[in-house]
């Protein structure tokens, strides 16, 4: 378990402020934020690599605020894997046991176990320079896990990989985590990566925590405009609530009024995710939020198609390819955008 209490860290010109966070034992937590948000500094602080200006770090009930990195039982894996270039794969992996003066039979046993887990036996005598990205990643993880740390810190572990190995490593990370049940903190700026791996997502921006919650909550109920934008909610309209009845609030933005099943009457933004919009040629019946407009742009995203509809304000709609291909729409086609009041999130 990781408990961070009112953490303040200053590194050069960067400031991490007021970080309060609890990560339960065995949980897979993803720290999500843009470049320069302070994600790496946060990880390094937990590992003991930065002095805190203020606050406490408690790992598994033990206050480690003043403890040296080597005595914390925390392993870190960096984006470029930071393998020791002068040591072979085997020497890299057993580094943590060597410096602890572990006896040779135990080292051999641990090496056998971990290289079996990651299926890297054939690589053991090679030097890091001769390995592929995916292989380096496995070696770095093996090196980090052979010492049986309580906590595993992963700093953008997948961003240096090509799409295919990324997919493979993503599922391997999940498998390893489930197998070893190790408390994991994974830093990324990739929203989809966070969604697919996390039990809990911590969104961080400009050195502060912006939101903490399970992926679905971050996704459908962002707590701020920043989180909404960062999770690609796309349709974020500024305005205000002008009325309320028993079931819904009425939110006015530019020329349109949006019905939302939310009682947040102080909201300044209405957020509707692009995949929650319906796009039809005819006016739909029985839907309270329905607006006519014309197609402005169509962008092919592979599995999905992003259609921008001009209807003051502008809506962005994400359609599955199959659905899109059944419709006959082109740039300039007149269409209707509609969505349920329950799809509208007010913040």
């Amino acid at each position: 378990m990781i408990e961070l209490k009112n953490l303040h860290v200053k590194v050069a010109d960067f400031l991490l402020e007021q970080v309060d966070l609890v990560v339960s034992k065995g949980e897979y937590t993803v720290i999500l934020g843009p470049t320069g948000a302070g994600k790496t500094v946060l990880l390094e602080s937990i590992a003991g690599l930065h002095a805190l200006s203020h606050g406490e770090i408690i790992l598994d009930g033990k206050d480690v605020t003043g403890t040296a990195p080597e005595a914390r039982g925390v392993s870190i894996v960096y984006q470029d894997y930071s393998l020791f270039p002068h040591l072979t794969v085997k020497e890299n992996i057993i580094f943590g046991l060597r410096v602890r003066h572990t006896a040779k039979p135990q080292i051999d046993e641990a090496l056998h176990w971990i290289s079996g887990l990651f299926e890297i036996q054939p690589l053991l005598n090679r030097l890091p320079a001769s390995l592929s990205g995916g292989e380096r990643q496995k070696v770095a993880l093996a090196r980090a896990l052979i010492t049986r740390p309580h906590i595993l810190l992963l700093d953008e572990p997948l961003s240096a990989l090509d799409a295919e190995s990324r997919e493979e490593m993503r599922s391997q990370l999940k498998t390893i985590h489930d197998k070893l049940n190790i408390t994991t903190l994974h830093v990324t700026h990739d929203f989809e990566e966070a969604m697919s791996l996390a039990d809990t997502i911590v969104v961080i921006n400009q050195g502060k925590i912006a939101q903490v919650g399970p992926p679905a909550e971050i996704f459908y109920h962002p707590s701020s405009e920043f989180v909404a934008r960062f999770t690609m909610a796309r349709n974020i309209f500024s305005g205000k609530v002008i009325g309320r009845d028993t079931k819904s609030s009425v939110f006015r933005c530019d020329a349109i009024e949006i019905f939302a099943s939310s009682d947040n009457t102080k909201a300044g933004f209405a957020v509707i995710r692009p995949e929650m919009l319906q796009l039809t040629a005819e006016k739909p019946i029985l839907i309270s939020n329905s607006f006519p407009g014309s197609v402005k742009t169509i962008v092919d995203k592979g599995a999905n198609i992003l259609v921008t509809v001009d209807c003051s304000p502008q809506f962005e709609c994400l359609l599955p390819r199959q659905q899109f291909e059944h419709m006959v729409i082109n740039t300039g086609s007149p269409v209707y955008i509609s969505f349920l009041p329950s799809s509208v999130h007010l913040i």
Partner: peptide
């Protein structure tokens, strides 16, 4: 030398 190599070594248990 990338300072992260030294960081990793520390977290692996090296003084």
């Amino acid at each position: 030398i990338d300072v992260r190599l030294e960081n990793v070594a520390r977290t692996l248990g090296a003084s």
